[in-house]
Simulated assay, not measured.
Amino acid sequence: MGSDTSTSPRFFVLEEGIHGSRYDADLDKAEPINRADAPRCPRCDGFVGMLKWLPPYRVKLELHGEELGDFIETSSYEFLISERFAEAFRAEGLTGLEGFHPVEVLQVRRMTKKKREPLTSPSYFVVSTRFGPAAVDPVLNQMRISAPPTCPECRLTRVDAIHGFVLEPGSWRGEDIFRPRGLVGDLVVSERFKDFAGRHGLTNMVLTPTEQYMWDPSHLGPAPLSKT
């Protein structure tokens, strides 16, 4: 891709660890599950998120790996982080997360048949990310979309495949974790967050440089290069 990565800030897509890993786990929200309205774009009124999870925050976990990690997704908009993750994030002044509501873990069910030591669960908090100002560059990306976005604020459109993307210069305001306009279903983090996660050994995370990130369930391939 034609971006100058030597001088531009670097960003990474944050995903949960791969299935079959040491920290592989599934989450079910326990009843009662209360919801609030999904957030909307302030300009076009289109949805820019899913229904918001409200208290009580109660979950049941299924562990397919060996131990529970520091990061467990509930959706692209809300996820669980361990107490040590939460404390370090706030202590070091990183930005982009909100909520930090304690979660009650009702049950942890080990799904492997091998005998293990008794399992303990970390204390977890549920956090969410805001729809922020950072935006996917409309030119310097390799995304296949069904139609050009009609709203210049949220830039919502149907994305069919991603073969790397970069952020529009000047749109990022310093957040360490955010959902970019044009790809509101993806979590993107700063290089400072990547360094933070590495120093603290935070688990169950995969961080991929945005320009190398691939999502192509229908095997469509990269978007054709624009002719100028």
Rank of each mutant, 00 (worst) to 15 (best):
M1N: 09
S6N: 10
P9I: 09
P9N: 05
L14E: 01
E16M: 13
H19S: 14
R22L: 14
R22H: 13
A25K: 03
L27Q: 06
K29F: 09
K29A: 09
E31M: 11
I33V: 15
N34I: 08
N34F: 11
R35L: 15
A36S: 15
D37T: 11
D37H: 11
R40C: 14
P42Q: 05
D45R: 14
G46D: 07
G46W: 02
L54K: 15
P55L: 12
Y57W: 06
L63W: 00
H64C: 14
G69A: 12
G69M: 06
F71N: 00
S76E: 02
S76D: 05
Y77F: 15
I81K: 03
R84L: 10
F85C: 08
E87C: 12
F89K: 04
A91E: 11
G93H: 03
G99K: 03
V105S: 04
M111K: 15
T112V: 09
K115N: 09
R116F: 12
E117W: 03
T120Q: 12
S121K: 00
P122I: 13
F125S: 08
V126R: 01
V127T: 04
T129L: 10
T129K: 02
R130T: 07
V136I: 15
V136N: 00
D137K: 06
V139H: 02
M143A: 08
R144L: 13
A147M: 08
R155S: 04
D160R: 07
A161W: 01
A161C: 14
P169M: 07
G170V: 07
E175Y: 04
R179C: 11
V184Y: 02
G185R: 04
V188C: 03
R192C: 08
R192H: 10
D195N: 11
G198V: 07
H200N: 15
T203L: 07
V206N: 07
E211C: 04
Q212N: 12
M214R: 15
L220K: 08
P224R: 12
S226P: 04
K227G: 08
